[in-house]
Amino acid sequence: MASIAVTSAPARTRTATSLRQWIGLLYVLPAVAFVVVFFVVPLGMTAWMSLNNWPLMGEHSFVGLDNYVAILRDTRFWNALKFTFYYTVVVTIAIFAVAFPLAIFIERPRPLTNLYRTAFFMPAVVGFASASLLWSWLLNVDSGLFSPAAYDLGLTAKKVNLLATFQPAFWSIIAMVVWKVAGFTMIILMTGLQSIPQDLQEAAVIDGAGPFARFRAITLPLMRRTLALALILSVAGSILAFDQFYIILRGGPRNQTLTAVYWIFNQSFVSFKLGYGAALSMVLLVILVALSLIQLWLLRKPEGLD
């Protein structure tokens, strides 16, 4: 049937193909409409706002690239970006350092595996804002958990205000984020681990490869895609970090934990410079897209590997 159609009427095939394409388009139309209305249009509006002096109140006026020129001189934004990168590197390493062992631990069925999986994953279903509020209380020096507990157990001579200086405050946030996010990363990594064929591992064992060699030569390369996914999610999430620094630290102590998004928020909704905030958002968007592309390229499928 098919061959007859092809030989007798190439023109009709073209129409059929194009008809199929049109139907395909029809199917994806709802999704396209969704993306256009909720992503493309707002993105276009943000881009347009970034070219204007757009105060919250009063008239806005077109200023061309002035906002972008101002960003170049905005040292506090670049400091915030620097801190954001620092935070991203530290927190990503921390998350993987915790999530990978957990994933290996819960990958194979063993007694109580489901209980462990649930327990480790549980914090991931808590919203970031709620988790921040919870930890904000845990970290409170007077009525919280950590400082009073350490004091009552005699570990510290007086109650230590964990949020008063940079190092303890920063590492408290890292601990909170790892607690909150590691479970999610663990699940992603677990699916990657489970997709590695067992016979490969067995063959390597027969060839005399130790656990470390197997991990390096089999597990890691075969988990490239999973790792790429987990890494991009973690990096993108960390670059966009805001809630925990806003709720727990208010950007403190002494503005040392202002992230890029926090700075955008401040410019837009504290100083009411919406146009400038939009320009900062565009810059951050470009940086984020570039970072994601770099990661995809680094973790691309090597030649010859299927």
Binding site: N140, V141, D142, K159, V160, N161, L163, A164, G252
Partner: peptide, 8 residues
């Protein structure tokens, strides 16, 4: 009190 330092 210690808490004063971080009281917003």
């Amino acid at each position: 009190p210690e808490g004063a330092q971080t009281d917003t």
